[in-house]
Design a binder for these strands. Structure first.
Lengths: 204, 204
DNA sequence: AAAAAAACCGACCAAGTGGTCGGTAAGAAA
DNA sequence: TTTCTTACCGACCACTTGGTCGGTTTTTTT
């Protein structure tokens, strides 16, 4: 933690409100004034703390978005025993949280990835890094699952991780369109079906 | 086809260029002037043909995007025999096309869904409609596949359709980040694995 | 309490934004 | 050829955008 308390407090408030609005309205569709109005702060305050809108957003990615993804999707999986049970629980929990969020606009990471893909390489890079950590994390637990006898040895951990991430990104996108309860239920059923097809069969 | 040839030609040119830029840069990040500059046309021409930017975009959805999704994802599946083979081929073809597209910015439908979700209900509605047709289409072929003995009877067609769409949306998003060849290969392997687990077993 | 540094204010700027409107080419109808 | 309609032009408008800067308040240091 930095010592500079007031500074950090104001910056943090701006970042929190910034993420809220960027998430809700999109980056390009949200102006700095929108954020400042919400906080009753001035342009001067903003540009005292941040160099530009882009710099501001990157700080949000590194401070808030990273943390969100970690606590929701990465930490719940790290170092656990049974990969499939763990992934099942983690995804279920993530979907349930989204489902009960009245103001759900989708998966933070993929929303911004969609908005910046091919348009802002700098920001894309930071977002991509987060997704990579997630992927590595999944691959790790799957590999460990093989040696621990949970996961069939012939499966391709990287491929499974890719498929899991893909399906998660997609379902979160669909859920925003409404009917999220039904969708997440259907999704979890199929996910279980998919995972079940990869458990290590008992040696007879 | 409308008779008004010149009218239709100009409108069409605007729509094509519009979709190109909206797809590449995003809707909110693309100005009407951007499009007009590309075509050496004036504001007057634009507002002679379209009422507003939103009206313009909706016409693009209804004319171009619908058609793109249909020809790539819906028609190749309609009325075919073996559902899993058909879906496999269709997805593989779609991914391959994307993979070889140097200027790939992701899945048109889901990109715009992400951009407008919760921000423009009008436009979201039209996009949602397309996705619904796709879903119904998948469910239909799966159900037919049951009676034809291709698909295990116990599976939930709606659930499978949702899962397929989710994973497709997700993988297309990931592919933009690069390494698309490897990603689409991994994806297809897992898709096949998933589909294979649902084939109707031979009655002994 | 005085001085210095940190935090914040808000008027201002140039460069856009979506959209309007009176006018003008060009092709079809008379 | 004249008339009329369709298609298009581009200056203009009100408003918003990201960003600057000289100045003021608040906090910390001395």
């Amino acid at each position: 933690m930095d010592k500079n308390l007031k500074r950090m407090a104001t910056m943090h408030r701006m970042q929190v409100t910034g993420l809220e609005l960027f998430y809700k309205q999109g980056y390009y569709n949200t102006s700095i004034d929108d954020i400042l109005k919400e906080l009753s702060l001035s342009k001067g305050a903003f540009y005292y703390h941040f160099q530009s809108k882009e710099d501001f957003f990157i700080s949000i990615v590194q401070n808030l978005i990273v943390q969100k993804v970690y606590s929701m999707l990465i930490e719940p999986i790290e170092g656990k025993e049974d990969p499939f049970r763990t992934i099942d629980k983690c995804f279920e929990n993530a979907l349930e949280t989204a489902e009960h969020n009245e103001y759900d606009y989708g998966f933070v990471l993929s929303n911004f990835m969609a908005e910046f893909n091919g348009r802002n390489e700098e920001i894309s890079k930071y977002l991509r890094d987060i997704y990579r950590v997630w992927e590595v994390n999944l691959v790790t637990i799957l590999q460990k699952g093989k040696t621990d006898g949970f996961v069939a040895r012939h499966i391709d951990s990287e491929g499974v991780a890719t498929y899991l991430i893909s399906s998660f990104i997609g379902i979160r996108m669909l859920m925003v369109e409404g009917n999220s309860k039904m969708l997440s239920y259907q999704f979890m059923q199929q996910l279980r079906h998919y995972l079940a097809s990869m458990v290590q069969q008992e040696l007879v």
